[in-house]
Amino acid sequence: MDNIRKTTKIQELTYELKIKDVMSKNVETVSSKMPVSSLRDILYKKRISGIPIVNDDKLVGIISIEDFITCLEHGEMDALIEDKMTKNIQSLYADELLVHAVIKFEKYGFGRFPVISRKDKKLVGIITKSDIIKGVLKKLETAYLDEEERRYRASHIFNDVVADELFFKFQYFVEGKNFDKAGEAATGLKKTLYRLGLSPEIVRRTAISTYEAEINIVAFTKGGQIIAYLEPHQIKIVITDKGPGIPDIKKAMKPGFSTAPGWVRELGFGAGMGLPNIKKFADKMTLRSKVEKGTHLEIIIKLSDYRKED
């Protein structure tokens, strides 16, 4: 299906995190007026591979362990740092997105970039590839813990109750042709499920499927109802209406097929994407219809340990 569009969680994080979130803040710096030999202790003791050179708070260059070794080979330990450092430095701003750092590392192949503040251009940190990896891993871990916490809360509701069969039922009545109220059921259900501690992704998929179904009731029928059952392992949403029913279900499921009148299209729906959207976000969908009698739609969203491939 659409592999190209899919970005990994890690790629997403490089857009979420900023450079200041992952950079090292305690930066060893040296003045450019010092001899190269003064670098020995810092490079050796701190086990770092590059040092920003700073005069009066201002970043003027950077010197790497490779530069140091070259000086050592040539017997230039007494030379001043300012003559041996890289002056044409590439730096990053602390408030830039992490993805910019990734791009810069790829582009220049350097081992590190000094990080400066956008406001006063002062050095505030340094970033290496390993800082990026550590930062992303840490964020992934907290995201995972948040997710665990939510799952715990959702299952918790059920753990406290003892019954042979158990579900919560949320029922909404939907008026036909009343576009002002369309969406009230879906947004209400969304808020409810979120408060009960379900994961945002599950809530979002449930809400989108319900909303499209709700719009269908409003746009095409004389009215109907939506009942959501929150069960220990799934959410089941049953949508029924009072007609007129769908003559050809296969056709109705086809993306782009629509019988919507002009007024529905002008309201931003009716382009034949509703039912395909429901199918896309649901784990299972069953549609039955009888012309003149009405339509019965059942949507299943599984709660956990299951990620729908979209």
Binding site: F179, A182, G183, T187, Y211, L267, F269
Partner: peptide
């Protein structure tokens, strides 16, 4: 980004986070 102006735009944003 949309040129549609009704309550459903707000609902859609809300529902899609």
């Amino acid at each position: 980004l949309t040129g549609l102006m009704n309550l459903q735009v707000i609902n859609t944003a809300n529902i899609s986070d």
